[in-house]
Design a protein around this nucleic acid. Structure first.
Lengths: 246, 246
DNA sequence: CAAGCTCGTTGACCCACGTCAACCAAAAAA
DNA sequence: TTTTTTGGTTGACGTGGGTCAACGAGCTTG
């Protein structure tokens, strides 16, 4: 069992209008005039240390969270202990949408490194959505994007072979690092082989072997969590032209 | 290539307030006073014949759809022709949410039988959500429920073995038929073994074999699309106590 | 009411990935 | 620093489910 309590809430508010993540986050695409009204939306920021939960399955739903710094994984647990990682989230991405439907969170959100989130009280979001036109649309887009992303993961899990899954995963990470101003070729993964495996429906050994295979084939260079994409086009080709199994 | 055009739009409007699907559909949980205002939401109904598309990946997004009668599947296609069924939808369920994020549908929706949907123009929904308090919340819940459902499918695909997947699928269908006033023990599936297989990340032969195995073990009785659940508890146990593979 | 379909079942065989185990490198703790 | 723990790699081997193929039962269409 991991410690759950020691989570710091710090009072210093951040204005969305002055946040450099604005073009990745909930306010993306909103007019400046609307943007300033958003500043009342973020109640507080909250720090979450590595390995700590932002929330757990079963927790009452009160707020959604925008990642200000760091990264998270979300997962679902079966009674018998099996874990399925349902996603990895980076700065600007929104956590907690699963809680709206039953007013109870249905998955766990765990920080992969020391992180910080903006707490967005859901009732305030609802209320402001009535008033600010662009906010409602943006929020709907965020939820819809999550649904589309989930369909992509189903495609991965249901129809692709191990190496295709890992290739798709690496290209996805690359694209997301790039969108955040980091290199698309070189990055450090924040999750373990086991977590990648859980996400991709594979055992950690299979993930490790696929990494090694890619390196042998000159597609990437890996050392532990450090990844260098030498041939992104090659990875893309692997997904499209490889014979599917299932 | 399948015919795409011959889809009937019929003018006769249905009031949500008089629809018997109200407690399964978007308006679920809304006050009567709010409900009557909803009637302006549904523009028209549209019939979709078996095997025809309600919409296709790439179509511009304009509306979401509530299923009035019949059933659908949604799927995603890879360039090389691989298909992943992302869901099966029944009466009262909402289709088209994937389109909001990019204003373009990202999957295909195909009728499994002759069906009928209520067309809900998205701009009208947005507008009414500003005015009717309960509507916004309900819509958010519908989207959130879809996200939670998707996580469940990821669990299936990523962490369960073939027989567990099929057991979970059958119990899910049973529960949904039951919610619609049909028997939870006996029902007719609307999809083929291949479609079930695609949804569950299995080949049709594996699905067929799992059906046969369940029948041998006295858990169900199957003949083609007709299913009789003889021992739902046994199916449940299979999911919880079986050793997971992945 | 045949003649074609499409869909489902079953068997024989095979392979991608899981399992088990040994080992090493990094990171954390002492 | 040394010790311990955690995470990653690699090999040998086993198996769940994929592949290929034959066949039969319902629908559908003429």
């Amino acid at each position: 069992m991991r410690a759950t309590v020691p989570i710091t809430v710090n009072g210093l508010k951040t204005a969305c209008s002055q946040c450099n993540l604005v073009e990745l986050c909930l306010p993306f695409g909103m007019a400046d005039s609307e943007l300033s009204r958003l500043d009342e939306l973020v109640g507080a920021r909250r720090k979450v240390k590595r390995q700590q939960n932002l929330y757990r399955a079963g927790d009452p739903f009160e707020a959604i969270y925008a990642i200000r710094a760091g990264s998270f994984k979300t997962d679902v647990l079966l009674e018998d202990g099996r874990e399925q990682v349902t996603g990895f989230q980076m700065t600007g991405e929104i956590l907690g949408l699963d809680g709206i439907s039953t007013e109870t969170h249905s998955c766990n959100a765990v920080a992969l490194e020391d992180s910080e989130v903006c707490v967005i009280a859901y009732d305030k979001l609802e209320q402001l959505s009535h008033e600010i036109d662009g906010l409602q649309l943006q929020f709907h887009k965020v939820m819809s994007r999550e649904i589309v992303r989930d369909h992509g993961v189903m495609m991965l899990l249901g129809s692709m072979r191990a190496e295709e899954r890992l290739a798709a995963f690496l290209l996805n990470m690359s694209q997301r690092f790039n969108a955040r101003g980091f290199s698309s070729q070189e990055f450090n993964l924040r999750m373990t082989r086991e977590e990648i495996g859980s996400y991709l429906g594979l055992k950690l050994e299979t993930v490790s072997r696929a990494f090694s295979r890619f390196q042998e084939d000159g597609l990437i260079s890996v050392q532990q969590k450090h990844v260098l994409l030498l041939d992104p086009a090659g990875l893309k080709k692997l997904i499209q032209h490889q014979q599917g199994v299932r």
